[in-house]
């Protein structure tokens, strides 16, 4: 089949969604399909959202160079506005600030009249567009629940392996815990850094990723006098990240209401336990407290206690991590493609 995967991309930013789309295209090609990505730039500013939806609507992707395109796979807002007779949505996320993030500090929507109207328009637009689609699957149960709740659409989660899957491997349970995340408020790295000030074991923290909060977080580590035990490794990709996973004692992953989150499965594929929180969203679909990691209260003391437990008992870390790996290995691309193409 000739398939286009529609993606909204923020220029100069690489994130999980971009990797998701790239992996999907690669996997489709491996199975003999003619697949290609189409993108429009995305800008999260409130006053540009509907314009961008219109821009997508302008695109008729039913043919290219006088040959039909058989299927369009939409991924996130507003890619499902594109015109095509056969659209399938594999939902990464909607415009979160207008949905579940509304009312939290992570949204720029207020309860003003214009903002409320805009939120309603976006929800109505999404619902209308979803009605055009043949099928809606989501990247996680968390995302499926949201779309059911806000748009009244029933959707099934479809898990896929993380992009790093083939490179990940088990290694020694070392003297550091790992965080892999963009350094943005929603990822709550500050919570982990504060946890580092409360642990009793001599464990270090390595943070992979970059973002708008970097300076602030470095300052916080210094103020809490844990700067010497916290390493900001910056943006790393591929083998370097796989190495850091392989040597970690465990992985701390405490975002707020994450959609899906590759980090959980990446940690598991490296046989590392995952420390997460009760409000982390996606990770909770995989992490079972005491089985393959720890599910803590979203408080630094609670994270610190979990890190201390792993540090005190490396055999426990290994047992939990291996249980996690067993779970993560059941998620394969073959299953994904089969269900997507129907």
């Amino acid at each position: 089949m000739r398939i286009v995967v529609a993606e909204a991309r923020v220029p100069f930013i690489r994130d999980g969604a971009e990797l998701h789309v790239q992996s999907l295209v690669t996997q489709l090609r491996l199975r003999g399909h003619d697949a290609e990505t189409v993108t429009l730039p995305f800008n999260g500013r409130k006053d540009e959202l509907l314009e961008q939806a219109c821009a997508w609507r302008m695109l008729n992707l039913s043919t290219s160079n006088a040959r039909p395109i058989d299927l369009l796979i939409a991924t996130r807002f507003p890619t499902w506005c594109a015109r095509h007779p056969r659209k399938v949505v594999w939902l990464i996320h909607q415009h979160r600030a207008a949905y579940e993030l509304f009312g939290t500090p992570y949204s720029d929507f207020t309860d003003s009249e214009p903002d409320t109207q805009l939120r309603q328009r976006i929800a109505a637009l999404d619902s209308g567009m979803f009605a055009e689609c043949e099928r809606i699957v989501t990247n996680s149960r968390n995302t499926a629940k949201r779309v059911e709740h806000f748009n009244g659409v029933s959707a099934r989660p479809l898990y896929h392996p993380p992009p790093l899957a083939s490179r990940l491997r088990e290694g020694p349970y070392g003297d550091y815990v790992l965080v892999v995340a963009r350094l943005e408020p929603l990822k709550r790295i500050d919570l982990v850094i504060r946890g580092m000030a409360q642990i009793s074991s001599p464990v270090r923290l390595v943070i992979v990723g970059d973002g708008s909060q970097r300076t602030e977080l470095e300052r916080e580590a210094a103020v809490l006098k844990v700067g010497h035990r916290v390493t900001f490794a910056g943006s790393l990709w591929g083998e370097l990240v796989a190495d850091l996973y392989a040597g970690a004692l465990g992985v701390v992953y405490a975002p707020f209401d994450e959609d899906y989150g590759y980090v959980t499965l990446e940690a598991f594929l490296a046989a590392k336990p995952v420390i997460t929180t009760t409000d982390a969203g996606g990770p909770l679909e995989f992490v079972r407290d005491g089985t393959n990691g720890f599910v803590c209260e979203p408080e630094s003391a609670s994270l610190a206690a979990a890190i201390d437990r792993l540090a005190a008992d490396r055999a426990l870390a290994e047992r939990l991590g291996r249980a996690g790996r067993h779970l993560a290995q059941t998620i394969t691309w073959d299953g994904v493609i089969e269900q997507l193409l129907g």
């Binding site: 923020v10 100069f12 930013i13 730039p41 961008q52 821009a55 997508w56 302008m58 695109l59 008729n60």
Partner: peptide, 21 residues
Amino acid sequence: DEIVAGAEAWRLLDVSCAGGG
């Protein structure tokens, strides 16, 4: 007819800012 729509899509895009700058 899609030619004009395709051109309008470019017109709707704001590319003055991206990725935090």
